[in-house]
């Protein structure tokens, strides 16, 4: 059953959450926003555009320890997979959709125990986007500006108060009790419908021209289109910014670190990615994805062709972070448009 909360009661709600959970919220920082663990409700910004890093990084953190070991005795090696109870708050639909996809990817057998452990102790509060949050996004093209599942609570701003969709038992537990939330009435629901009608007006400009449903097919046809990949490859500095900020990038490396006492150590997971030069290099010296052009193409294909084929939907949720973070100004929107343009030309 859905509820509502007055805008000025949100602080009280967060204060309540802080008693039981680590609360991760969008926080303003140097003109942009980041998902951070907060200890005071005033730190959270409900109105924010895309954060620098996606919230999934709290479920799939960098430098996560996988094993603890004793250098003298291998039988004392222990698996580390633990998590504190956390709530990711005010997560936009694009990021919720990304987490939904990663749930499937990392739960596919053999599943990833560290991700699943953290995921199971994570609650998610969604926050509806009623219009585009910034330039260079393509969530609307993909239908990823709306989230249908993957949250416990879902907030929609209906003017002075929020309509809160309660999606799970855990979500119900969060809104019950202290009288902050009121049962949603007919008028609230009408306001929700009105807000959603406004959303339709807000999201009105597609970033990619043409039928996005055909993109995967057109990409496959453009596999050898050097005019696209060589051109983008020449721009690419192979810095890996795009893969670090992407909410559906999950490639990693496992690295050992030994304590200076030379007795104990850890094996941890470090984010890694296909745009870095050495990603596919083997010890013998062979590099299986040598050129930046091949690497750029692989990133685009991984999102739009390979993940789509395996999991039935695109791996690019349209958040636009890779575009914002690229100092060489490579734009996945631009690439998609050129692929579509090429397809139109070749018909």
């Amino acid at each position: 059953m859905d509820v509502t909360i007055q805008s000025n009661d949100v602080d009280r709600f967060i204060r309540g959450l802080l008693l039981y959970y680590d609360v991760i919220a969008p926080v303003a920082r140097d003109g942009r926003f980041v998902f951070e663990r907060i200890d005071d409700p005033s730190m959270a910004s409900l109105k924010y555009d895309t954060t620098l890093l996606p919230p999934i990084k709290w479920i799939y953190p960098n430098n996560e320890i996988l094993l603890e070991f004793d250098l003298k005795d291998i039988t004392k090696t222990e698996v580390v997979a633990q998590s504190r109870k956390q709530v990711l708050t005010f997560v936009h639909p694009c990021d919720i959709n990304a987490i939904n996809l990663m749930d499937e990817v990392l739960a596919e057998e053999p599943s990833d125990v560290n991700y699943l452990t953290r995921r199971q102790s994570t609650l998610i509060i969604g926050y509806e986007c009623l219009g585009p949050c910034r330039e260079n996004i393509l969530c609307f093209d993909k239908g990823y500006h709306i989230a249908y599942r993957g949250f416990d609570l879902f907030f929609t701003d209906i003017g002075g108060r929020y309509y809160v969709h309660v999606a799970t038992d855990a979500g119900r537990a969060m809104v019950e009790g202290d009288g902050i939330f009121k049962k949603a009435a007919y008028d609230d629901w009408k306001d929700l419908m009105r807000a959603r009608a406004e959303r339709k007006k807000g999201f009105n400009k597609k970033a990619v021209e043409g039928d996005i449903g055909m993109l995967s097919h057109f990409l496959k046809e453009a596999y050898n289109a050097d005019e696209i990949w060589e051109a983008e490859g020449r721009k690419c500095l192979s810095c890996g910014a795009c893969i670090i900020v992407c909410p559906t990038c999950y490639c990693f490396d496992a690295v050992d670190e030994v304590c200076p006492d030379m007795e104990k150590g850890v094996r941890y997971r470090r984010w890694d990615g296909c745009q870095l030069r050495g990603f596919c290099k083997v010890a013998g010296g062979e590099n299986f994805r040598k050129s930046a052009a091949e690497r750029v193409r692989h990133r685009v294909f991984k999102k739009e062709v390979y993940l789509k084929k395996r999991f039935g939907r695109s791996g690019c949720v349209g958040c636009g972070r890779c575009i914002d973070s690229c100092i060489a100004k490579i734009s996945i929107i631009d690439i998609f448009n050129r692929v579509m343009e090429r397809a139109r030309r070749n018909v």
Binding site: L106, D112, C251, D272, F279, H298, F301, K309
Partner: peptide, 19 residues
Amino acid sequence: LERRMRCGIGKCGHCQING
């Protein structure tokens, strides 16, 4: 075929060949 197998569980991405 040989690639840089890293995790063995089809997740880390190093041994990916196309899809």
